[in-house]
């Protein structure tokens, strides 16, 4: 170890050398810090960007309003807006459209409000049942029994040019407060 320090020991008495060393260290650490931040920004940014960027909800058409028969609930497929080509089959999504009377709807997410498992509609008993932990909902989406803390998640809907559209794009969750 001692021989490594010997050159500096020999010149340490020189104040100008001392200053130059201090300056070089300060400059070096500053440059490293700037460079580090510059490199880290895009790396970390790309990793966390999905959490910061605004959500991509869109109005999605589910088909002509006349498709639905009053007093029925049916499972409808739609494609996630803004999906990527490699999403494959997971680009598809589904929701339950309940038609109460002509032009009056409720649109439910298939995800159970407990932990997101797919609930199944039973038109015979007019109940939604969840296969994971046994959450059950009535036909209006309100909680009937089981662990869910609330009723089914609902999508906002509107009728545009005779088409039923829902406002969707993200996985529903308890934070949404819908």
């Amino acid at each position: 170890m001692s021989e490594m320090h010997s050159p500096s020991d020999a010149t340490s008495s020189n104040p100008s050398t001392e200053n130059r060393r201090g300056f070089l260290f300060a400059a070096g650490s500053t440059l490293m810090a700037i460079g580090g931040v510059l490199v880290a920004a895009p790396i970390i940014g790309a990793a966390v960007a999905p959490g910061i960027l605004p959500e991509k909800d869109q109005w999605i058409s589910l088909g002509a309003v006349t498709n639905w028969v009053p007093d029925t609930t049916v499972l409808i497929k739609f494609s996630n807006p803004g999906g990527a080509p490699d999403d494959g089959i997971t680009r598809e999504n589904a929701c339950y459209v309940r038609c109460m009377e002509a032009g009056k709807f409720q649109v439910f997410a298939v995800n159970c409000a407990h932990l997101g498992c797919p609930v199944e509609w039973f038109s015979q008993s007019r109940l939604f049942m969840c296969p994971c932990h046994g959450g059950v909902y009535y036909e209006d989406g309100s909680r009937a029994s089981g662990p869910p803390p609330r009723g089914l998640f609902e999508f906002a809907w509107r009728i545009q040019d005779g088409m039923l559209e829902i406002f969707s794009g993200r996985l529903p969750g308890l934070q949404e407060g819908t």
Binding site: V74, L75, I76, K77, A94, S123, Q124
Partner: peptide, 12 residues
């Protein structure tokens, strides 16, 4: 009646 249908245009 209590005979449900299994066909039709629905997804399932």
């Amino acid at each position: 009646t209590r005979m449900p249908g299994t066909g039709g245009a629905s997804i399932t």
